[in-house]
């Protein structure tokens, strides 16, 4: 950690640890899932947001090409007109409200261990994001839309997804441990 960086720059401020009981947060998320299934008839979801934004951007840049690609073409001419896009906006807003109330908004933080640089950390974040974006399409959802939402209905595919998610994570965790070294 270079001399002009503070604990704040790497997300180590004291206010960051004043969280609610994780079990009760989990129950709260479970209640949100129940509410979503009883009102919307679907679970929650997040990965559709960036994916559909990607489809819209590709449409703006190369409309004919995008219309000829089977996957994005299936989302129609207005991929952003979709309930999960609005849900992700809501997730951002809800997170913002909570973070503001708890005094946890700290702009410009690149969260990492003290002994790790900001640039390599952002490269890990980007590399992982690419893989997650791809894997979420393949699995038809992410931790929210597939693991939690499908798991809530005990869908076998979703349960397989969760098990493999943790297997993949634990199997490769040693490769990325240094970014959290203090």
């Amino acid at each position: 950690m270079s001399s002009n960086e503070t604990n704040r720059d790497i997300g180590h401020s004291p206010s960051t640890t004043n969280y609610w009981n994780p079990y009760l947060c989990g129950v709260l998320i479970g209640l949100v899932l129940i509410a979503s299934y009883t009102v919307l008839g679907t679970g929650v979801g997040a990965s559709a947001g960036p994916a559909r934004l990607g489809a819209q951007i590709e449409r703006w840049i190369a409309p004919t090409h995008t219309a000829a690609t089977e996957y994005f073409a299936g989302w129609g001419e207005h991929p952003l007109a979709y309930y999960l896009v609005f849900m992700l906006v809501g997730t951002f807003v809800g997170g913002l409200v909570s973070a503001l109330l708890a005094g946890r908004v700290e702009c410009g933080v690149v969260e990492r261990g003290k002994a790790f640089g900001a640039v390599p950390r952002l490269m890990f974040a980007g590399g992982g994001g690419l893989i997650v974006g791809f894997a979420s399409r393949l699995a038809r959802g992410c931790t929210s839309g597939q693991a939690l939402s499908g798991g809530a209905l005990l869908l076998t595919g979703s349960l397989i997804f969760v098990a493999c998610l943790f297997a993949g994570g634990y199997a490769s965790a040693f490769l990325f441990r240094r970014q959290w070294n203090d």
Binding site: E111, F124, A125, G126, G127, G128, G129, L130, I131, V132, F134, A135, S136, L138, A139, C142, T143, F161, C164, L165, F166, A167, G168, G169, Y170, A171, S172, A173, L175, F176, Q179
Partner: peptide, 10 residues
Amino acid sequence: LFGLGFVMSG
């Protein structure tokens, strides 16, 4: 794959 991306990016 998702697990790999998750642990890489956090």
